[in-house]
């Protein structure tokens, strides 16, 4: 596809712009910003990837992964601002996901240790882990607030923080994992995944594309489970002090 052909694709940006103007949705500015940002960001990534793939230097690959983890952490940390030290917890989780998945992929020779494989797969997994983190943190903080009375009841009866937070933690972990599991149930029936579609459009053998997609799906399952559980177990202790008192909740005490 040439840049001239691609520029014709801007017609697909004009359609929502016209609609938002006609219906007074007030989304014109955001649509333009989103379009410009996506063009700049993707073109920059394209050039960087071309350079990294050409050099095959491990340092550049690591730098790319660090960049991805930094961006993912920056994005997800806002949702967990109430949790002390959430930035480091997210970084540890993303690094662990990266090391675990690439370790298995390269260690078992499932994929070759080349930038062409490491970077796109890392991007998909860290991106997915970021979304999972946001889902988990949103649900976890809501659950803690909703179950505050239950948490304090368990503490007042002699329970430990882990026992007191158990329900909130498990509910949030399950809730953040469900979308990944559910979307995998209908994959291929409702939608063709982006990576597989991209490979087919680029001329790859559909069965080869399917094999790669299955690999990614299985990796996403691991990512979903590890992200939620790890983040959950790293986060809950910071909600309590050394006297096993709940400290990190919006206050709704009702002193009598």
């Amino acid at each position: 596809m040439s840049f001239l052909t691609l520029s014709l694709a801007l017609v697909f940006v004009l359609i929502p712009l016209i609609l938002t103007k006609t219906l007074n949705l007030g989304l014109g500015k955001d649509t333009v910003i989103a379009t410009v940002r996506s063009i700049i960001q993707l073109l920059a990534v394209g050039y960087i990837l071309t350079f990294v793939f050409a050099t095959e230097n491990l340092i550049y690959i690591i730098l790319m992964v660090i960049l991805m983890i930094t961006a993912a952490t920056h994005n997800a940390r806002k949702k967990g601002a109430a949790i002390q030290g959430i930035t480091w917890k997210l970084i540890v989780t993303f690094v662990f996901i990266e090391v675990l998945t690439q370790g298995i992929l390269i260690g078992f020779k499932i994929t070759p240790p080349e930038a062409q494989y490491i970077i796109p797969i890392s991007g998909m997994l860290i991106g997915n882990s970021m979304v999972l983190s946001i889902l988990f943190l949103n649900r976890f903080t809501a659950e803690i607030e909703a179950r505050k009375d239950e948490t304090e009841l368990i503490l007042s009866l002699g329970g430990t923080p882990k026992q007191a937070i158990h329900h909130s933690l498990i509910t949030a972990i399950k809730a953040s994992m469900i979308p990944t599991i559910e979307s995998q149930k209908t994959i291929g029936l409702v939608q063709l995944p982006g990576m597989m579609s991209g490979q087919i459009i680029a001329g790859a053998d559909p069965m080869q594309a399917v094999q790669f997609q299955l690999l990614i799906l299985f990796l996403l399952l691991t990512t979903a489970a590890v992200t939620s559980i790890m983040l959950g177990f790293l986060s809950y202790p910071t909600l309590f002090n050394s006297r096993m008192q709940l400290i990190k909740l919006p206050d709704n005490n009702n002193p009598a």
Binding site: L155, L157, G158, G159, T160
Partner: peptide
């Protein structure tokens, strides 16, 4: 001085 769990029980 008390362990929080012992105190609360």
């Amino acid at each position: 001085v008390y362990e929080p769990t012992d105190l609360r029980r």
